[in-house]
Amino acid sequence: MDLKLKVWRQSGPDEAGGFVAYDAKEISPDMSFLEMLDVVNERILEEGGDPIAFDHDCREGICGSCGMMIDGVPHGPKSMTTVCQLHMRSFRDGDQLTLEPWRASSFPVLKDLYVDRTPFDRIIAAGGYISVRTGSADEANAEPIRKKDADAAFDAAACIGCGACVAACPNASAMLFTSAKVAHLAHLPQGQTERYTRVLDMVETHDTEGFGNCTNHGACQNACPKGISVDYIAQLNRDLFRATVTTAADPVGS
């Protein structure tokens, strides 16, 4: 099959960008979307051009490196699927596709479709962990955890940090990402000690990193390749409210 691509090209973070048209010819429906781009890039290289830059790594939908807007939808038309797992059989011969990077002030474009998502690391560093020194852990089976809590924690922890939620959000908010980590740890007994300081610190960093705020559109959930639910955002809100109006997050007792 043959497709036409309109791809955002931008040579550097401070350069102006624009759309450039490419033909993707003789594409097999069994190719993944990124393999299709590999083929296009191989051709660009043969013709002496600079290949389209995009981040990618594991190509099995778990590392969270890849991601781009395909016709205005993060990771393209197939739900619960990262762009590396999206296959060309989801498209038709002659389709015209627009490829754009994630757009958010906090995710500056480094080149073409490649953006910088390091603010996510800083949100985690603000409190997305349980403080336990190596070697200081209790015997693993000492504290039973209800299966449903462990499962719920896992569901939230399945986030791959790809940034599709930010890209999809009309406010460029990273609240789904932040809440997934807050909820993961809040579902576990080990996460209780720091539960309320964690939510305050993570939301504060989320804000200072320049992400927008959540206004409950739900676009993030629909864009998320791992199906992370906006219910976690509700939980984050509740925890933050509690942390603010009660003494739960106060550093010292009175």
Binding site: D71, V73, E100, A104, S105, S173, T215, Q221
Partner: peptide, 24 residues
């Protein structure tokens, strides 16, 4: 105004995938 600052460069093509039209 926060949301505006959080995305200064908009999308060339965008599709609304919010839960409902009302939210927009």
């Amino acid at each position: 105004s926060r949301a505006r600052a959080a995305r200064t460069q908009g999308y060339g093509t965008s599709k609304d995938i919010s839960f409902t039209y009302a939210s927009r």
